[in-house]
Design a protein around this nucleic acid. Sequence first.
DNA 1: TCAATTAGTCAAAGAAACATGACTGCTCAA
DNA 2: TTGAGCAGTCATGTTTCTTTGACTAATTGA
Lengths: 117, 117
Amino acid sequence: MVYNECGQKEVTTLHHDLPNYMDCPAEPILKLISGKWKPQILYLASKGTLRFNSLLRQLPGSSKQSVSAALRELEEAQILVKRIVQEKPLHIEYTLTEKGHSTLLIFRLASSVSKHD
Amino acid sequence: MVYNECGQKEVTTLHHDLPNYMDCPAEPILKLISGKWKPQILYLASKGTLRFNSLLRQLPGSSKQSVSAALRELEEAQILVKRIVQEKPLHIEYTLTEKGHSTLLIFRLASSVSKHD
DNA sequence: TCAATTAGTCAAAGAAACATGACTGCTCAA
DNA sequence: TTGAGCAGTCATGTTTCTTTGACTAATTGA
């Protein structure tokens, strides 16, 4: 015999245990902005334009591989824009988009939540 | 010779590349609420009280091990409370705390950010 | 008494994430 | 023209995360 969450007999089906097709709507963005380096990368992006090698040095313990992957994912999600700066010396810049700025609102809320724990 | 982000000569030191001691303040909570199952667990918790085996069935593909670990971490962080319900049948319930509810504000913001991309 | 349910733990295996080091190709100042 | 910096890629190895399956121990209904 099967019981539901209220301790009552469940005669028909376990409909409350069926796989949920109502998934957490926040999951995609959470997945996008989490990981070993992405929060810190976005935080640094909020302070100014990013450059690859500089970023690597600002993330001690990180690797080209994962920083490169993080930048690519954030660019694909249109949170960062990559642009080639045709100035001397020629270089590449990563900057927050409008979407990137609104995504960073999540960070501000998150840090205020953790402050008064 | 070394150049800074503006393409100007950097005569003294690369102070903009020194390891940053200003870490992203949102990182701890982001780490806490992210992972393979935690977003969905918290989402389900927002809809009502959780029970271990029911939760497992609602998360197809998950394992006892990781759901158990997730619940423990969320309990340790005081986002969920665990309580033994002395009713027939005796069982254990996980419920959102006050802190848990304010943490879920992050989810609401996150989903609204992703909706108008 | 027996089988099922609840709520887990533990060891081992497999998958995913991440780091290391070598290498590429371009630019730029000396 | 050489050496250094920039912005990466790629193969390999390690570490970390997650699943699998066996097991425990109590409760409960038939």
